Structures are given as structure tokens and as C-alpha cells.
Simulated assay, not measured.
Amino acid sequence: MFAPQGPTLRELAVQALSSVEHGYDLLAPKFDLTPFRTPEVILASVAGVLDGLGPFGRGLDLCCGTGAGLGVLGKVCRDGVTGVDISAGMLAVAARAHPEATLLRADARALPLSDGFDLAVSFGAFGHFLPKERPNLFARTYAALRPGGRFAFPVVAPFRPGSPGHLALLGFDTAMRVRNALWRPPFVMYYRGFRLSDVRQELATVGFGVELYALEELGRRRDGSPRARLVVATKQGRGLARTDEAPPSTEEGSPN
């Protein structure tokens, strides 16, 4: 599961008992050696879809971590890329990997940017936000985009109830809730609260038009539906969400 040079069990335990910010500061030097980094197949598939929708001007990686998404933006954006993250440690690693990028330490829930970007992306970060925080997060992202700008992020189809994947996520979320009930500061990381039907409505309420694109490199399930989709939300006037394909199941699924 981890590379030999990856974090030890003790290091992971210390991170898990820290705040989100400090925990990632501690994990940052070894983060890319863990399975928590967004897999290359997802990054490449997202880049392929965005390449067909672009080109774009300025790009923003929201909760950029060590910079996996900055590489995607660099392929489709012509006028520079910016990464935002709350962890100084993660940004330090991103700076070494992407010296061409502008990096900003900030909380995405109080994003200090407006009307400057043509494309925003985010990979694997939404589990760090409680459902009640998402409308504000989406509103902040909307404000950071120029008219017609797009906000894109991948969503993996939910596991079937009772499947090993579903039980693993249920166990993880339960353990996190117990941890946060007994220990302070909290470490928010919940995988099962990111329902695509809810997210589409929240994006539409902010003023985004929403489209879904299958990430074909991730394959399809037995019923023919994609294993993963790219949500592409376009900044426009307020109205109902649009989609070019039927939505997936509204069962709880992972944001990663």
C-alpha cells in the first residue's frame, strides 16, 4: 500500500491526531509516496477531457497539495497556473515540483481571489469539507472565475452497498467520527458525504451550469455507467443545472 520510503505507522498516527493543516504539514515530505495522491490515470484522463474543452487562460488548483493538479493545468492553460492550499508543508513540496506556478497559502473557504481565472480544478479534497461548508466553497470558487470560466473535478462512482469498498469507506468514516468525538483538534476527512446529486444542485444554486463527462480510461461498471466522471461547472447566470448524460446513482460515494 505504501512505498518503502513512505510514512511509517507512527507518522500516520501522529498525523491523524493533528489538525488538518498541521497533519498535512507533517505528511508533506512523504505524501507522494502514499496512495492518497491522485493516481496518474485520473490526472491523465481529466487532462484529456479538459484539452478538448480548452484552451484556457489562467488556471487555479484549489487545495493543490503537493501539486498533482498543477501538472494538469500546465497542459491546458496558456497564461500561468496558481495553486492554493492551507498547508505550508504541502506548498513547499509543490514549489519544488512546479517552480513555474504561483502558490498561495489560504483556506479555500475564505478564498481571497476574484474574477481572475478561466479554469479551476480540484482533486481529492472535498472530503475535508463538511456538507454545510460546500455552498460557501463553491461560491468562493465561482467568484474566482471570469464569466464563462469553468470549475472541474473528478467524481468516482459509489461502491455498491455491502461491497468491500463500501464497507471500507464506512469503516473509515466511522473511525474518523469516533476520533473527532474524542480528540481535539478535529481532523475532517469523510468520504461518504459527497453525493453527486447534492453537489450538482449546490453548484447550480451558486450560478454554475453543470455538465458531466465520462472518464473512459477508468472503465465502466457492469451496468454500463462510467466508473468515474468529470464534473464541469461553468460560471453563468443563475439557473438549473444542465447535464449531457443521466446522473449516476445517488448512493454515497468517494470524492477522490
Rank of each mutant, 00 (worst) to 15 (best):
D85M: 03
A95E: 11
S249C: 08
R37I: 07
T243R: 11
K132F: 14
C64E: 06
G83S: 05
V155N: 08
L215I: 04
V41L: 13
V178H: 03
T82W: 07
P158L: 06
R177D: 08
R221K: 12
P55H: 01
G6V: 05
P99T: 04
L218R: 09
A143S: 13
G48V: 03
S87F: 01
G54K: 00
F194G: 06
S19L: 04
H128G: 06
C77V: 01
P185H: 05
V210S: 02
R105C: 13
R222K: 15
L119F: 02
G224R: 09
K132T: 12
A246S: 13
D173R: 07
P164Y: 07
D115F: 12
E202Y: 07
A110G: 13
A68V: 05
L17K: 14
S114R: 14
D51Q: 14
G224W: 10
Q5Y: 12
G116L: 06
Y24A: 05
Q5P: 09
Q201C: 15
F151R: 00
R105M: 13
T250M: 11
V72M: 01
F129H: 03
V14P: 05
L145R: 01
P164K: 10
D244R: 14
G69L: 03
G209K: 15
G253N: 07
L33Q: 14
E245G: 13
L169G: 08
E216K: 14
Y213F: 15
T8D: 07
D223M: 09
T205Y: 11
L70S: 04
T234L: 04
G219R: 08
S225Y: 12
A95D: 08
G59M: 09
A228M: 04
E216S: 15
V178D: 02
A143T: 09
P161K: 06
R140T: 09
L215H: 05
F159L: 11
Y213D: 08
D107G: 05
L182A: 10
L212G: 04
F172D: 07
W183K: 12
S163C: 08
L26G: 04
P112S: 03
D51E: 14
G57S: 07
P7H: 05
D198R: 15
V72Q: 01
S19Y: 02
H98F: 14
L91H: 03
R184L: 12
R242I: 11
A228V: 03
F126E: 01
L60G: 01
V156L: 15
G148I: 02
T234M: 08
S122N: 09
V178Y: 03
S122C: 10
L218D: 02
V156S: 13
L53A: 03
N136D: 13
G67L: 05
V41Y: 12
Q5T: 13
R220P: 06
F208R: 00
L50M: 03
V84N: 00
K235R: 14
A175K: 13
D32R: 06
R150T: 00
G253A: 11
G162Q: 07
